[in-house]
């Protein structure tokens, strides 16, 4: 696999009021890999993710996404970037007033001139690849279970065939069986749709099942970046504590 850098984070500093969150973060994500942000809670993993998807501003440094520097990007380019990624939020963020199918179809209706039949075909396809039943498409988010909501939100984030998929703690709140199913699904979709996946995760099993490379954020800095084996060799109090926790492995 040729390693094209699809996301590059250089020296990013984030500060909320007096609270310094990131003090010079450097990392890069290669095309086609599943990349994870790890770290103790409150270390700013989700903040970093939100900065990359342009929901949060950073104080200094630069983030390059698909060859665009997002701190200087214009409105049009920003919009074009947004077409090329999908985001799955921790709380799913499905629009509660729309059915699952309407949630998924929203971007297609807004950004394409496709006929309703073609839109339905695409929606049905996405519903199928995330492992939902076609019937679930007619239900409202309040009528389906947590695992199904995750899948529906995933289908929504995949609807425009994005290059990059951002996942914020995708397996949190899922039971172990659904969580493992979700891991398999992510890897499968990456292979099928040539996705690059960036996720924030706490779930050890999910980390070892899915991630190709990862960055560990601790004390406002990246303490380690690399594959799981590489990370485990690095001496850091957080890494030792995190991976010595055997409870989750059966």
């Amino acid at each position: 696999m040729h390693s094209n850098k699809i996301i590059e984070v250089n020296n990013v500093v984030t500060q909320f009021g007096k609270n310094l969150v990131h003090d010079g973060i450097n990392l890069h994500v290669n095309e086609g890999e599943i990349y994870g942000f790890l770290g103790p809670s409150g270390c700013g993993k989700t903040t970093l993710l939100r900065e990359i998807i342009m929901l949060e501003n950073f104080k200094s440094g630069s983030i390059e996404l698909l060859g665009q520097k997002i701190e200087t990007v214009g409105m049009r380019e920003a919009q074009r970037l947004r077409m090329q990624w999908g985001v799955l939020f921790q709380s799913n963020a499905l629009f509660t007033s729309l059915t699952v199918a309407e949630n998924i179809a929203l971007s297609l209706q807004e950004y394409t001139n496709l006929s309703p039949e073609a839109i339905n075909d695409i929606v049905a396809f996405k519903i199928d690849i995330v492992g939902l039943n076609q019937f679930d498409g007619t239900l409202y988010p309040s009528e389906i279970s947590g695992g199904m909501k995750k899948k529906a939100a995933l289908a929504r984030s995949l609807v425009m065939d994005p290059k990059i998929l951002f996942l914020d703690e995708p397996t949190s709140g899922l039971d172990p069986i659904s969580a493992r199913e979700f891991d398999t699904l992510i890897v499968k979709l990456r292979d099928l749709l040539n996705l690059t996946v960036v996720m924030v995760s706490h779930d050890l099993t999910s980390i070892s099942n899915t991630l190709d490379r990862m960055a560990v954020i601790d004390n406002k800095k990246i303490v380690a970046e690399g594959s799981l084996e590489e990370i485990k060799k690095i001496k850091s109090p957080f890494i030792e504590r995190f991976f010595s926790n055997k409870r989750e492995r059966i």
């Binding site: 039949e117 075909d121 049905a124 690849i129 498409g137 007619t138």
Partner: peptide
């Protein structure tokens, strides 16, 4: 890649579904 995608589309498609 193109062939893979076409196969996947054929495998997972549900043509003519309507969600009303």
């Amino acid at each position: 890649d193109v062939e893979k995608m076409l196969h996947m589309a054929q495998e997972h498609a549900h043509f003519g579904t309507h969600f009303k």
